[in-house]
């Protein structure tokens, strides 16, 4: 006991500086090998999932209440809007039916290989990562539910992100806005290819757009399917701003209001390279880039 007391005193004296150094070393190790930490991270997140889910519930309830109040206030206007929208959609339904029939006929004529059928899992968002570092959310579905790395996460109108880490019962979705998110996309009307790159801001930017490309504000951006991670034609967003040659895209999905995500398996995952390739540097010049690079993992 007598030896223990001074030892304890020394320990408490140097604990703070030692732990500060240890944390700094840990950060540097992260940079060197993120794979090691992923193996610690996913089981840990699995373990605390019940707590996170419990704490996410009041947030969801609060959201439901505010939504109810909002919708009650705007009931009449909303009803009018929906009636008009319904008229428009009925028209589109008719058009879609005609096109579907025509499309099937033409595909039959061409012996077209159909896309594999997609299956999906719905999952609730149980935690978000705040701050300046990452743009990701945790969902309460994992390997046991059939979630795998690279699968697309959709929310209502469009693409929200992709699965970056999978645990047994949880998974991390890297949002489109994250600094490490790269999605090969296609501009809907001009048919130009580009890569949608997040930079932790609300609106990700388009990279590798050909210099001659004529991009218009309001143009639809869809996934191109290059790289074999996402299927083509998933709605991603619209071109929102062009400043100093930087094209910014407003995602269709309100990424800060995610509650449920649909994780879709198109049978395409597994194409992501497992060994982490060196990071591709952004090119400053607006050089014509005919081939968008294959999507990479952070």
């Amino acid at each position: 006991m007598r030896v223990a007391a001074p030892l304890k005193a020394i320990g408490s004296r140097f604990a703070l500086p030692l732990l500060i150094i240890a944390s700094a070393v840990l950060i540097v190790l992260n940079k060197a090998d993120s794979g090691l930490f992923e193996r610690i991270r996913t089981p840990f997140v699995d373990a605390v999932e019940p707590v996170l889910a419990f704490f996410a519930r009041p947030a969801a309830t609060l959201d439901a209440v505010t939504e109810r109040v909002e919708s009650a206030v705007a009931l009449y206007a909303e009803n009018q809007r929906l009636k008009e929208e319904n008229q428009r959609l009925l028209h589109w339904q008719h058009a879609a039916r005609t096109l579907l029939a025509e499309n099937q006929r033409l595909k039959a004529l061409l012996n077209f290989a159909p896309d594999p059928p997609a299956s999906f899992v719905s999952a609730r968002v149980i935690a978000h990562s705040g701050g300046s570092f990452v743009r990701s959310v945790l969902i309460n579905a994992g390997r046991v539910d059939g979630i795998a790395r690279g699968q697309a996460a959709l929310a209502g109108e469009g693409l929200a992100g992709r699965i970056a880490e999978v645990g047994e019962r949880t998974a991390r979705v890297l949002l489109l806005t994250d600094l490490n998110s790269r999605v090969p996309v296609l501009l809907d009307t001009s048919r130009e290819r580009a890569v949608l790159a997040g930079d932790n801001s609300e609106r990700p930017r388009l990279l590798y757009l050909p210099a001659r490309a004529e991009v218009k504000i309001g143009e639809r951006v869809v996934s191109s399917g290059h790289g074999g991670v996402f299927p083509p034609n998933l709605p991603v967003g619209v071109v929102a701003a062009i400043e100093d040659g930087i094209v910014r895209v407003e995602p269709y999905v309100e990424l800060s209001r995610l509650d449920y995500l649909r994780i879709v398996d198109y049978g395409l995952s597994g194409v992501l390279p497992q060994p982490v390739p060196p990071k591709t540097r952004e090119r400053r010049s607006k050089s014509a880039e005919p081939e968008p690079p294959v999507e990479e993992m952070p």
Binding site: L19, I20, S23, F37, F44, V134, S136, L138
Partner: peptide, 28 residues
């Protein structure tokens, strides 16, 4: 005590996906 801050900070980083050690460093 510092060790608790280190533990809580590390747990926080593991959940948010930030580099492990970041929050511990800031807290300490």
């Amino acid at each position: 005590p510092p060790i608790l801050l280190f533990a809580v900070g590390s747990a926080f980083d593991l959940v948010t996906g930030a580099p492990l050690g970041l929050s511990a460093l800031v807290f300490l």
